[in-house]
Amino acid sequence: MRETLKEESSKLTIAYLARTTIPSRAANSLHIMNMCSALGDWGHSVELIIPTNKRIRKEEESDVSDVFTFYGLRKNFKIKKVSLLPFPGGLLLYLAMIVGWLKFKRPELVYTRDSHLAGLCCLLGVDVVYESHYFKVQRKLPYSFLQSVLIRSKRCVKVIAITKALADQLVIAGYDQRKIGVFPDAAKAPSAESKKINLSGKFVAGYLGHLYPGKGMEIIFPLAKRLPSVSFHVVGGKQEDIDTWKVKGLPQNLVLHGFVEPGKVSEYLYDFDCCLLPNQKKVKTSGGGIMDIGAVTSPLKMFDYMAHGKPVISSDLPVLKEVLTDEVALFCDPENVDSWIEALQRIKGDGDLRIAMGIAAKKLFEEKYSWKERARRILEFIHKDVSAA
């Protein structure tokens, strides 16, 4: 790969390796599909390689006739599904099959956000770019060994971190700081054909995303109870999480819409008067897992809010302020509901402020945080690193 990336403007053959379910409601699938599409937008030949078996197929979103339409994307890259055998050792066999395929196909760029795949690529002599979304010390073989290989191998030519806070963790873990670049997540520019869905309420405070611990329903629920003049619309969440909150007794001004296809989310976002980003200090991974990503997260919803030109009310957390500024967001104590009430009342009562913040948010998105711009910057970063080697 060091030799093949000599010309920054050349078109590359790119293999994106992932272990995710597509189509699905998982945020990682949305991120991966958008990155592949963004790389394709620059004219590169991209192939996404993902696993499949009977269990995975059951987890796929049903009644999806076209996966690209589901995610609201153009069909500008290929998807290849490789069998993951459901027995002990099946994952290692799958990983080995992928690396064998890479050695046969010889793509000019191998990219993954899967540390196991990245480590195995390094072990078997395949150059790889690894994108990290969190860091967890692996303690069980063979994954602890693969992690050690990934951290130390020259075959890992670049490490992409989604936040500065995460980059600091990676350096402490032993990654070469010179290889690490910080590139926050991004969003897709909304389609000009998107229309408002006409949500109920004179003033709509909206939230997009999951409802598991730390994402912010801990703030939204009491907010709705104390601000009956504001309509709260929550788009997203698994049914079991929605049911958990419904049991608590939802106030009339709090509507849980459930999952909406990524390609249709803009219809809701356009109707929000302001957007809520009430991350807590500790945020669990999907399904309420044991991983705490609160200090290193780069929420996709944050970029979607800006892409739609919406003012944001956000938790006052360092990792979120890596992206958000005072021009686009009002910041609140993540654990103090009174702080959120004050911010909502301020933004509700000041139309000029809402407009100014929305314009600033849209401008910031267009300058730095589209998927296409993210892909361009990452490729430029990889190119410079390779050229210097």
Rank of each mutant, 00 (worst) to 15 (best):
V247N: 13
K248N: 06
L250Y: 13
L250A: 10
P251Q: 05
P251V: 03
L254C: 04
L254M: 09
V255I: 15
L256H: 05
G258R: 02
F259L: 08
V260N: 02
V260E: 01
P262Y: 01
P262H: 02
G263N: 02
S266V: 02
S266C: 10
E267I: 01
L269E: 06
D271V: 04
P278A: 01
Q280K: 14
Q280W: 05
K282R: 15
V283W: 03
K284L: 15
K284H: 13
T285S: 12
T285V: 14
G288M: 03
I290N: 11
I290D: 14
I290P: 14
M291S: 15
A295V: 07
A295F: 07
A295G: 10
A295C: 08
T297C: 14
T297L: 14
S298M: 10
S298C: 07
S298Q: 08
L300F: 08
L300W: 10
L300T: 08
K301A: 03
M302P: 00
D304P: 04
Y305G: 02
A307C: 09
K310F: 08
P311K: 12
V312P: 01
I313H: 07
S315Y: 06
P318D: 03
K321G: 03
E322F: 09
E322K: 09
E322H: 05
L324D: 00
L324N: 03
T325Y: 10
E327R: 11
V328H: 00
L330T: 07
L330P: 05
L330M: 12
F331R: 10
C332I: 05
D333M: 07
D333L: 11
P334C: 06
E335D: 15
N336C: 10
S339K: 14
I341K: 12
I341D: 05
L344H: 01
Q345M: 14
R346L: 13
I347Y: 00
K348Y: 14
D352H: 12
L353K: 04
L353Q: 14
R354N: 09
R354V: 03
G358L: 01
G358D: 06
I359S: 12
A360M: 07
L364F: 08
E366D: 15
E367A: 14
K368T: 09
Y369C: 03
S370P: 07
W371N: 00
W371T: 04
K372N: 13
K372G: 03
R374E: 02
R374M: 01
A375C: 05
R376F: 09
R376V: 10
R377C: 04
I378V: 15
L379Y: 00
E380G: 15
E380R: 14
E380W: 08
I382D: 00
I382G: 00
